[in-house]
Each structure stands twice: as C-alpha cells, then as structure tokens.
Design a protein around this nucleic acid. Structure first.
Lengths: 193, 193
DNA sequence: TTTTGTCTACCTACTAGTAGGAAGTTTCCA
DNA sequence: TGGAAACTTCCTACTAGTAGGTAGACAAAA
C-alpha cells in the first residue's frame, strides 16, 4: 500500500541530505542528477531555479517539523516527556547518521548569502521551534514540573541554542554521543528537584 | 609605526571574512581577487590550493585564539571575569558585525565535505576551546566561585555549545542581542549563589 | 643572479539554466 | 467512443559564466 515517492519528492529528499552535508553552496543539480538517475534538465522542470528548490524544501521541512511537534504535544503525556521525545528524535538522527544536522540550522549559518526567499523561511522555522519550546516550558511551569530561572521565551531560546550547539560539537568532534551529553543535563536542569 | 599587512595576510583576512559569511564553498579565488585588487594567479602564488589556504587560515585563527585565551587567563582577575571577557569579546564582534560568527563553527557545520587538512584543524580548535573553558571552570570551582552540576569537562562542552548555538540563533533571527540574552544567563548560572 | 611577487593568458571541469523535442497521460468534446 | 488538443515528464544538446588551477613572461629586490 505504500506509494512510490514522486520524482519531486525524491529530488527534495536528496537535496535535503546534500544540504545537511554541505549547505546551500555544497550541492549542485548535477549531484542530485547523479543520485537519483535523472537528467539535470528534468530537475529544472520540477524546480526551475535552485533558490526555488531550496525554498520549497525548507517549506516542506518546516511543515513536517510543525506537524511532528504538534503531534508530540498531543500524544506525549507531560511537558517533560515532550521535551524528552524531541531531543530523543535528534539523538537517534545523529547516532544513526540518518540526518546528523538540522537543515535549517545548516542554512542559518549561511544566512548572509542565502537568497531572500530561503532566508525568510529559515527564520520562520527558528521562530516556530522557539515558540513550540516556549509553550512546552510554559505548560511545564503551570503543571509545576519545571522551575525556570528566566521567562519561558528566554529559556526556550537557551534550550534551542543548546540543541544546535550540541549538534555542531558532535559534528565538529566526530562524536555523536556528545549531543546527548550536552543536551541531556540541560533539560534535566529544568525539572523541579 | 604600524606596518602594512603583507599580501598573504590580506588574502587570509578577506578569505576569513568570506568564510564567516558563506563557508568553505561560499567563496572563490575570484572573490578574494576582486576584494583586494590582485589577480587570481597571484593568490595561487601565495596559496597554491584552496584547501591549503583555508588550512593556513584555520591554523592562524587557532593560534590567535589560543594566544588571546591564554592572555585572558593571565590578565583577568578571576575565572568569572575570564568567562565574562570571553563572551564579551563575541558579544561585541556580533553587535558591531565585525566578525558575526566563529570561522571554525562555520567550517564545523560543513565538516562532512571539508578537505581532511581543514577538518582536522577545525577539530583542534574545538578541542582547544573546550580545554580552555574546562580549565577556567575548574579554577572557578577551586576558588569556590562556581558551583557546577556536572564535571568541568562536561560543563565546558555545554557552555561551548551554548555559545555556538547563540551565535547561530542571533544570525538566523537577525537579532545580535540574542547572543548575550542566551549566553549571559548560562554563565550567570555557574556562579555560587 | 636568483628569488619573489605580480601579471596575462589560458585550461579543464563544473555551475545554473535554456531550447526544443519525444514520449506518455489526461481532458474534453463532437 | 474516438480522437484531437493539452499537459506532464523526461530527454539530448546547448549556453554563458564561474570554479580551481597552470604556464610562462616580466620587473624589482636580495
């Protein structure tokens, strides 16, 4: 019953993994062409320009993330579990190397030279993630599960930075376990003693 | 009395600011050529290959950072001040946009497709920085200025991640003030109440 | 006189992107 | 229901421009 992914989805999938590896300037239509066995011109049929391809890709990523985070809020029992599942998602992505970095974090580092249509979408993802973390922390405070030093918005920014910084350190030092070694204590500290 | 910087220093300076803006694949010899008014071939005279240029650049950066951090340890009164000066250095770099990102953090994000000679040097910088932070935290604990939840090495990794993640968020959201808003509370928390 | 730094001129490989056409599929209507 | 028009997807073949890099000439300095 599982339907074959469409060509444009395959293009986006490959492009995404190439961006995660090397950023916006780190991949070309030729790379995608080789990876999925289709001509460059055919990729241009689906996505006329590179900036457009990446803009669509980031839109898709943002929507998937929004959906995932939203369903986490519905399913996970407590705010503490929601946070745990969130970081556990990244822990496994990094440890099995399936997606060892966030696409938007990657693109954010190149912000200064990204086409506008891409840059604005990356900002949107950052705002969405910060908002989600804020709401989880807020709920945790209300349920007396968390005790925060700062306002939930600030604490959410601190947590988001920790997650992205931990991804970077894990990558820089080639040590996947470093991610959870950094983020784990950071969320543990939020809990009421 | 100030001596004019040599051509190769000018090349490295421009290359560094270009890498900070767009990473390893985000600049070319032609960009440097335009920026300092010298032909591409002349740049190849100083740095035969791009990988070599960037390797030298990272070596220089690492040495400058080592020297700066070392003199901070000598000059600053207490470990708390050392930490404060360190993050204040980055705060001003980001706020006046002179160097809104760490070269090695930038390159670390592209780790997977960096030439080996560059990747190994980026790892070295990360190890050096982690070691410096560890020693500062350690000294702070011994002087009863800091009270850490975790071992100094782990706390240092957490702090380094926070710094890099804060740079990324500041850049992604186009808000230079976000850097200190994230890192400030993080170091404040280390102090003994 | 050798070394250093710069130049012009060039190379090959690759970049994003285009033109035009060959199949197959869908739509629409007499 | 048949068939023409329209659309989709892919192709080959191409463009202009840029990538990193090289060869060799020239001038000034050591």
């Amino acid at each position: 019953m599982k339907s074959m992914p469409s060509t444009s989805d395959k293009i986006l999938d490959i492009a995404q993994s190439l961006i995660v590896a090397g950023g916006y300037n780190g991949f070309s239509y030729a790379d995608i062409s080789n990876a999925i066995g289709i001509r460059k011109a055919s990729i241009h049929h689906h996505f006329p320009a590179k900036a457009e391809l990446v803009a669509v890709l980031v839109d898709r990523y943002t929507k998937q993330a929004e959906a995932g985070l939203h369903s986490l809020r519905e399913q996970a029992a407590s705010p503490a579990d929601q946070l745990r599942f969130y970081i556990d998602y990244w822990r496994s992505c990094i440890e099995n190397a399936s997606q060892p970095f966030c696409v938007c974090a990657m693109l954010a580092s190149e912000m200064q030279m990204l086409p506008n249509e891409v840059a604005s979408r990356v900002r949107t993802h950052f705002r969405n993630l910060a908002a989600w973390l804020t709401s989880v922390l807020q709920a945790g405070v209300e349920q007396r599960l968390f005790q925060l030093d700062k306002r939930p918005e600030e604490q959410a920014q601190m947590l988001m930075a920790s997650v992205h910084g931990a991804m970077l350190s894990a990558r820089a030092l080639g040590d996947p376990g470093l991610f959870i070694a950094i983020v784990g204590p950071e969320i543990a500290r939020l809990r009421v003693a």
